[in-house]
Amino acid sequence: MMKIGNHISSSKGYEAMGKQALKLGASTFAFFTRNPRGGSAKAIVPGDVAGFLELWQEKGYGQIVAHAPYTLNACSAKQEVRRFSWETFADDLERMEYTPGNYYNFHPGSHAGQGTEEGIRLIAEMLNAYLKPEQTTTVLLETMAGKGSEMGRSFQELQGILDRVELSDKMGVCLDTCHVWDAGYDIVENLDGVLEEFDRTLGLSRLKAVHLNDSMNPRGSRKDRHARIGEGAIGLEAFKRIINHPALRELPFILETPNDDEGWAREISMLRGYYRE
């Protein structure tokens, strides 16, 4: 079964998110753990979580992919920003254990002129401070487009972080199609080659989820501008290959396209139609 969904608003709670995902035809979904542009987090209601877990188990669906707020920057040059980011990360990991066995995805951050090595050091320091042997959540580093001083623009940068993480079995990677395209990886003409490089550098066992996004810009632009599936520079034919690739087809696919509910339902249905069961 194809595991595909989109970002669902978490404002109404877990059970409502699950029901909304089903309404759109999804079998997984992503959600922000808190205000994506701020720091406030909705209180977790155990009964609401229990309702969601019962619904998801009844459907037999797999992992969901939580997303850290965009304001989390573990390698910021400003100490107060790093403190906020580390505290948010620690709190989010505790909250994730209400829905055990799922994924928590975050943008590695921007080193803001400190240099890549310092960025890697600070991100790994945060991870080593808060990852716990008993946690059931897998933390995912997201591949990034590389605009400005953004970290995670290459598989090598991500591996630089993972090499320094003590509990590396708690870590994985989320591959964003728009981001890797904008970073220069040719997933249109050379998908096999890109995945082979990922395997050599990080190991395909690290790849846990895929953000499915077309791109408004040409390859290597480092812009990070998402487009609807088939309406950008990546194109529909490439997405047909991506969702059916042996290394990717069993992973959760999350749409982050510029859409409304009707548009996401249409994309989910369309991609299911191209998926070879």
Score class of each variant (00 low, 15 high):
His107Val: 13
Glu58Tyr: 02
Asp261Lys: 00
Met216His: 03
Phe155Met: 09
Glu87His: 03
Glu15Thr: 13
Ile268Tyr: 05
Arg206Cys: 14
Gly62Leu: 12
Gly152Ala: 12
Leu141Pro: 09
Phe253Ile: 13
Asp261Ile: 03
Tyr61Arg: 02
Gly38Tyr: 06
Gly203Asn: 13
Asn35Phe: 12
Thr99Arg: 00
Gly273Ala: 14
Glu267Arg: 01
Tyr61Ile: 11
Gln79Tyr: 03
Gly101Thr: 08
Pro100His: 02
Pro218Ile: 08
Gly273Lys: 07
Ser85Asn: 08
Thr143Asn: 09
Thr99Ile: 15
Arg34Pro: 11
Gly235Glu: 11
Ile161Val: 15
Ile120Ser: 07
Asp169Leu: 02
Ser154Tyr: 05
Ala68Glu: 12
Ala50Val: 07
Ser269Ala: 15
Glu87Ser: 08
Met216Trp: 00
Glu189Lys: 01
Glu117Tyr: 00
Trp56Lys: 06
Gly146Pro: 12
Leu22Lys: 12
Ala77His: 08
Gly109Phe: 06
Ile243Asn: 03
Pro108Gln: 03
Ala30Phe: 03
Leu24Thr: 09
Leu55Gly: 08
Tyr274Asp: 11
Met151Lys: 00
Gly193Ser: 15
Thr138Ile: 15
Ile242Phe: 03
Gly109Thr: 03
Ala247Trp: 14
Arg34Gly: 15
Ala21Trp: 04
Met96Gly: 12
Ile64Thr: 05
Cys174Asp: 14
Asn217Phe: 02
Leu191Met: 11
Gly13Ser: 10
Ala238Gly: 08
Leu72His: 02
Pro36His: 09
Ala77Gly: 05
His67Ile: 14
Met96Phe: 10
Leu53His: 01
Ala50Met: 09
Leu236Asn: 05
Gly160His: 03
Pro218Val: 10
Met144Gln: 13
Tyr130Lys: 04
Ile242Pro: 06
Met1Ala: 13
Met2Val: 14
Ser10Asn: 05
Leu53Gly: 04
Tyr130Leu: 04
Glu97Cys: 02
His67Glu: 15
Tyr70Met: 14
Trp86Met: 06
Leu255Arg: 05
Ile243Pro: 01
Leu212Gln: 01
Ile187Phe: 06
Gly18Gln: 07
Ser110Gly: 10
Ala238Leu: 05
Asn73Pro: 02
Leu167Thr: 10
Glu117Asp: 14
Ala112Pro: 00
Gln63Cys: 04
Phe29Tyr: 15
Thr71His: 02
Thr116Gln: 14
His7Ser: 06
Lys208Gln: 14
Thr88Trp: 00
Leu212Ala: 15
Glu262Gln: 11
Asp199Pro: 07
Ser11Asn: 11
Gly39Pro: 02
Ala90Pro: 01
Gly230Ala: 09
Gly119Arg: 04
Ala183Gly: 15
Ile187Met: 07
Gly62Met: 10
Asp186Met: 00
Ile234Pro: 07
Gly18Glu: 10
